[in-house]
Computed example of a mutant assay.
Amino acid sequence: MQPAAEGEKSFAPRPKKRDVHGWVVLDKPVGMTSTHAVSVVKRAYAAKKAGHAGTLDPLASGLLPIALGEATKTVPFVMDGRKAYQFTVAWGSQTDTDDTEGRVVATSDKRPDEAAIAALLPRFTGTILQVPPKFSAIKIAGERAYDLARDGEEVELQARPVEIDALSIVGHTGQTTTFEAECGKGTYVRAIARDLGVTLGCLGHVAHLRRTRVGPFTVAEATTVETLRETADGPDAALRPVEAALTLIPQIMIHRDAALRLKRGQSVLLRGRDAPVEAESVYATSAGILIATGSIENGELIPHRVFNL
Rank of each mutant, 00 (worst) to 15 (best):
I291G: 00
Y283S: 00
K28H: 09
L248C: 02
A287F: 01
V25P: 07
A220P: 04
A237T: 04
R240I: 00
P13Q: 05
I192E: 00
R305W: 02
Y85H: 05
L59P: 01
I138H: 15
K17Q: 12
T35I: 11
T231V: 04
A232R: 02
A37K: 14
F217I: 06
L260R: 08
R190K: 07
R160P: 15
E230P: 06
L248M: 03
T224A: 04
G288I: 00
V277H: 10
A106Y: 13
R271L: 04
T100S: 15
E297A: 07
L246D: 03
L239C: 03
K73C: 08
S168K: 15
G197S: 09
E8T: 09
D274A: 08
I296C: 01
V89C: 11
L270F: 07
P161L: 11
A159I: 14
L246P: 01
E8H: 07
I289Q: 02
H172I: 10
G126I: 11
F11K: 05
V206A: 13
V242S: 00
R82D: 14
A118S: 14
G51L: 10
C183P: 01
L26F: 08
L167Q: 07
T231L: 03
C183L: 08
A115K: 15
D147I: 13
D80P: 09
K83I: 05
G186H: 10
A44G: 13
Q158H: 15
S267A: 07
D57H: 12
I140G: 11
A292M: 02
A193W: 10
G102W: 11
V206S: 10
Q86N: 06
I138W: 12
T187K: 08
E230V: 04
I249S: 01
H36I: 09
N308P: 01
G62C: 03
F307I: 01
Q130S: 11
R18L: 05
G62K: 07
A106T: 13
R14M: 09
V105N: 09
V282L: 01
E278Y: 05
T212L: 03
T173R: 13
G171Q: 12
V225Q: 07
L121T: 12
V242P: 00
E114C: 14
R14A: 13
L68C: 05
F11G: 02
E297M: 04
T88W: 01
D257V: 02
G234V: 03
V214T: 15
Y85L: 07
A222V: 06
E154P: 07
L148D: 13
A106I: 10
S108Q: 11
K73M: 08
S295F: 00
A275T: 06
D113T: 07
P133M: 11
S281M: 01
V189A: 06
I291F: 00
K263V: 00
L59D: 10
A115I: 10
M253I: 00
L167K: 08
R240A: 02
A119M: 12
G201I: 15
V170E: 12
A191I: 11
G22S: 03
V75W: 09
V131N: 12
T224L: 02
R213Q: 08
G152T: 09
T95H: 09
S281Y: 02
A115E: 14
R111T: 12
T231N: 02
V155Q: 13
V277Q: 09
L196W: 12
K139T: 15
C202V: 12
T74M: 00
A191F: 05
